[in-house]
Design a binder for these strands. Structure first.
Lengths: 337, 337
DNA sequence: ATGAAAGCGCTAACAG
DNA sequence: CTGTTAGCGCTTTCAT
């Protein structure tokens, strides 16, 4: 199918040396001294023949693949995921590693694509991005000493290697800023249960407490995170009630739909109600008003996670037991004072 | 580093057969008949030992990599790119191919990562997604018979293998709908030069002509596509003028910023001005009003492109010379009549 | 300083 | 129906 390509043997012949020498030269093998003119001859020959090493063959010999598998739960077209991937990429490129996307994640980890890939030498390690790890999966990975890292806003209980985040300080800052403008009546709209959500909700409660503000239960608006229903649920919660001075929205979508609600009903933002969104998207600065947001350090999460994975791949389990914790940031825009 | 793993030789020993038989069974090789009990013995042994083929070794033997390289110009965190990637993925998964992201695209194609990967047997083919191909790059690819496909809204001149799109009918339909509501005065906001842009602008002109409407040059608003400047430029163009009844916006960002302009200035959409956006994003249905959009068939572009690539990889250059042309669609939402 | 040769794990003639 | 065997292209010990 693919026509025969030039191999290191060809280069050796062309340069009048042995195949071993070609390998020594091209890999700059530090354990072996090569006469400069020999070296040059090899390099010239390689260039002349337009030689490229066959990574597959090399990797086979070296018993590694020089790529890492990326696994996600999120829709791929999800901004946080992709942004974290950009951070990962930055770290990988440096070391000449490549990214393999792993899709099929079966119900049993044993037949997840990424496990097959790992055992098939297609990837050397695994990065879980924005994916909640099941207890048993973590156990399986660690039992088999598979290099992996979880990159996720939320802590993954029991996962040995992870990058997680803390948003409490950023939310505290956001609410402090509101308070400085005389706003004390800050509600919360979103989900109140579940892992990810409860991290957000509890950050809100933490921030209120730190700011010595009361959480009023009549200003807590439970909304399920289902794209098609969010707006209706918001209407159900907010129609005809007395609104608080500010609302913190659980995530990007809820922030958008809440703004939609305000715009639709002629409620001025932030004059009547301030709006703050938890989560990151590039569209928050394209609306009217632009939406203030507490945002995760996505790029750095990717970068740091990938670096951690390299440590594990290089030195094995046992290094760096501590999770990396990165801080969220408050990005004030027009929707809040 | 990685502990020795179980090979097909081990399975052979365990099952009391030869390595070849193991290969025959596990690959379901149709050219060779295996006694059912032998087959079963092999399968059992493999399971017992938790055997996984070593793809690297297999690929080396087969002289292929079972992965394709994805190259893009766009920021990865770009919705159209990722959506197309999802289509690609759907096609790849079926054939057990995997995706390798190629990042470094040097100025000279010879040292682009994807070329190195190809010549290094790391990928079997290349898909360019939303990336404008240079003349010379196309020439290089075709001279070397490298399987590639361009997936792009716009035609890539001279690229033999491509998926491109046609938006004229969809825009015509959108404008026809406006006209049916008595709107005849339709402006255009965006860029008027450049490859991508002129496709859009000319689709608008085509649609106006088809609908027997006049393009009024006073309702053509040139805006440069620079995120940080768009809004200011829009203000510069629209402040204090008499607006048309409808505006077609060049792309997603301009659509958003134009809506921002309207909302900010209390101009009702669509009562005062209808808005139509060319381009796709999931956020168009989260604003108030939601934004009508003419959208590219991104998922299918990815899917079809990937299928085309498989044809080329399977049968070589010479198949399917004709570009695949896919139609855009009009998605009417609240921002237009 | 360089070469000969072994072998990574797999597949596919070919032989039986 | 199954086994023997010869590589795929590379790296690396061990000789020289």
């Amino acid at each position: 199918m693919k026509d025969r390509r030039v191999s290191s043997k060809d280069v050796a012949r062309e340069a009048g040396v042995s195949q071993a020498t070609v390998s020594y030269v091209l890999n700059n093998n530090p354990n072996v001294k090569i006469r400069p003119e020999t070296r040059q001859a090899v390099i010239d020959a390689a260039r002349r023949l337009n030689y490229h090493v066959d990574f597959i063959a090399r990797n086979m010999r070296l018993r590694k693949s020089a790529s890492v598998g990326i696994v996600t739960d999120a829709d791929m077209s999800n901004f946080p995921f992709v942004r974290a991937l950009e951070g990962i990429k930055a770290s990988l490129v440096e070391r000449n590693y490549s990214v393999v996307m792993c899709f099929g994640t079966g119900s049993d980890i044993q037949d997840a694509e990424y496990i097959k890939y790992y055992f098939s030498n297609l990837i050397d390690g695994i990065i879980f991005v924005m994916r909640d790890l099941k207890q048993e999966d973590v156990k399986y990975l660690e039992k088999n000493q598979i290099p992996y890292v979880s990159i996720n806003g939320n802590a993954q209980p029991n996962a040995r290697y992870q990058v997680k985040t803390d948003m409490r300080q950023a939310v505290t800052l956001a609410i402090a800023q509101l308070k400085a403008k005389g706003i004390t009546n800050v509600g919360y709209l979103g989900q109140f249960a579940g892992n990810e959500k409860s991290m957000r909700f509890s950050a809100y409660r933490y921030a209120m407490r730190e700011n010595k503000l009361r959480v009023a239960s009549r200003h807590l608006y439970p909304i399920n995170d289902n794209e098609n229903l969010i707006f209706d649920e918001i209407c159900g919660q907010l129609d005809g009630i007395e609104l608080p001075q500010a609302i913190v929205c659980d995530n990007v979508n809820m922030g958008f739909y809440t703004l939609r609600y305000m715009n639709k009903n002629g409620i001025r933002v932030p004059e009547d109600v301030s709006l703050i969104q938890l989560g990151t998207t590039e569209f928050s600065r394209r609306t009217y008003p632009t939406i203030s947001a507490v945002e995760a350090p996505l790029y750095n999460m990717g970068l740091r996670g990938s670096e951690l994975l390299f440590d594990i791949m290089d030195y094995g389990y046992g290094v760096h037991g501590d999770p990396i914790v990165l801080q969220w940031q408050y990005n004030q825009r027009e929707s809040s004072w």
